[in-house]
Computed example of a mutant assay.
Amino acid sequence: MNNKIKSKLLILSIIGIFLIAAIPLFSSLKEKLSVGSPSKVANFKVITSMAGFDPYKIKAKAGQTISIELVNNEDIEHHFGSDELNFSYKVPANSSVVVELVVDKAGDYLFFCDVCCGGKKNPSMQGRIVIS
């Protein structure tokens, strides 16, 4: 082989090795860039019971759509409401209800069950929607 062909093969080999070695670097960069962007919908599943809400705290970003599946496995109706956010939903016995809302302002908002269980004044029947 002449020297021109050898040097071209050497250069192409070095470029190929560099590109192969760079693949994990670019994949890692892509993952880092996608972590910081919030999802358009924050999905939650909340169990309602005589013991309260599980989980009792929901966290989302301002302006983000919040989708909450409220699951009631008991033989009595429950309620999911917030005076501060101006919503009120009944969750019939042994059923589930999906609620979607958008909160534009950062804050810590109270939600509660006001059907049974001592009403909204009962601390175990309260929860928080925390918007950052």
Results as ranks from 00 to 15, higher is better:
residue 15 I to D: 06
residue 20 I to D: 02
residue 110 L to K: 08
residue 38 P to V: 15
residue 55 P to T: 07
residue 57 K to M: 12
residue 59 K to H: 06
residue 121 K to L: 11
residue 93 A to V: 01
residue 126 Q to A: 00
residue 26 F to I: 09
residue 26 F to R: 05
residue 6 K to W: 00
residue 22 A to E: 09
residue 62 A to K: 11
residue 116 C to S: 13
residue 94 N to M: 05
residue 116 C to Q: 10
residue 94 N to Y: 05
residue 130 V to P: 04
residue 108 D to S: 13
residue 63 G to L: 12
residue 124 S to I: 01
residue 81 G to P: 01
residue 56 Y to A: 15
residue 94 N to W: 03
residue 2 N to D: 15
residue 66 I to C: 03
residue 115 V to N: 12
residue 11 I to C: 11
residue 38 P to C: 11
residue 119 G to L: 02
residue 82 S to T: 07
residue 128 R to I: 08
residue 106 A to M: 11
residue 114 D to F: 01
residue 39 S to D: 15
residue 74 E to G: 05
residue 66 I to F: 05
residue 17 I to D: 05
residue 24 P to S: 03
residue 129 I to D: 05
residue 56 Y to M: 04
residue 106 A to I: 00
residue 53 F to C: 04
residue 88 S to H: 11
residue 43 N to I: 12
residue 52 G to L: 00
residue 27 S to R: 08
residue 105 K to N: 11
residue 5 I to R: 14
residue 32 K to Y: 04
residue 81 G to V: 00
residue 93 A to E: 09
residue 111 F to K: 06
residue 56 Y to G: 04
residue 11 I to Y: 07
residue 72 N to G: 06
residue 61 K to I: 14
residue 112 F to L: 01
residue 31 E to Y: 10
residue 19 L to K: 08
residue 93 A to G: 02
residue 103 V to S: 01
residue 6 K to M: 15
residue 63 G to T: 07
residue 11 I to G: 03
residue 86 N to F: 01
residue 72 N to A: 07
residue 88 S to V: 02
residue 122 N to G: 01
residue 132 S to G: 11
residue 116 C to A: 15
residue 74 E to C: 00
residue 81 G to W: 00
residue 49 S to K: 04
residue 89 Y to I: 12
residue 45 K to F: 03
residue 25 L to Y: 13
residue 102 V to T: 14
residue 106 A to N: 06
residue 35 V to T: 11
residue 64 Q to C: 14
residue 66 I to P: 03
residue 40 K to W: 07
residue 96 S to D: 14
residue 104 D to I: 06
residue 58 I to S: 08
residue 73 N to V: 04
residue 20 I to T: 11
residue 26 F to S: 13
residue 10 L to S: 11
residue 101 L to P: 02
residue 71 V to L: 12
residue 61 K to V: 12
residue 29 L to M: 06
residue 86 N to I: 01
residue 81 G to S: 08
residue 61 K to C: 02
residue 52 G to W: 03
residue 128 R to W: 00
residue 103 V to G: 08
residue 12 L to I: 11
residue 54 D to I: 08
residue 121 K to S: 15
residue 25 L to N: 05
residue 72 N to D: 09
residue 87 F to V: 09
residue 57 K to V: 15
residue 81 G to M: 01
residue 65 T to A: 10
residue 132 S to M: 05
residue 45 K to T: 15
residue 111 F to T: 04
residue 92 P to H: 07
residue 77 E to Q: 11
residue 105 K to W: 09
residue 53 F to A: 03
residue 101 L to Q: 04
residue 121 K to Y: 03
residue 84 E to C: 05
residue 94 N to K: 14
residue 108 D to Y: 15
residue 79 H to K: 09
residue 4 K to G: 08
residue 3 N to G: 05
residue 115 V to L: 06
residue 10 L to A: 15
residue 115 V to S: 09
residue 95 S to N: 10
residue 85 L to A: 09
residue 73 N to P: 06
residue 56 Y to C: 03
residue 55 P to S: 11
residue 43 N to V: 15
residue 101 L to M: 08
residue 78 H to V: 00
residue 18 F to Y: 02
residue 6 K to T: 10
residue 25 L to F: 14
residue 101 L to G: 03
residue 85 L to K: 12
residue 93 A to D: 11
residue 78 H to K: 12
residue 119 G to V: 00
residue 87 F to T: 07
residue 23 I to S: 13
residue 31 E to I: 03
residue 44 F to W: 12
residue 53 F to T: 05
residue 110 L to I: 02
residue 103 V to A: 04
residue 77 E to K: 02
residue 75 D to A: 14
residue 69 E to L: 14
residue 16 G to L: 14
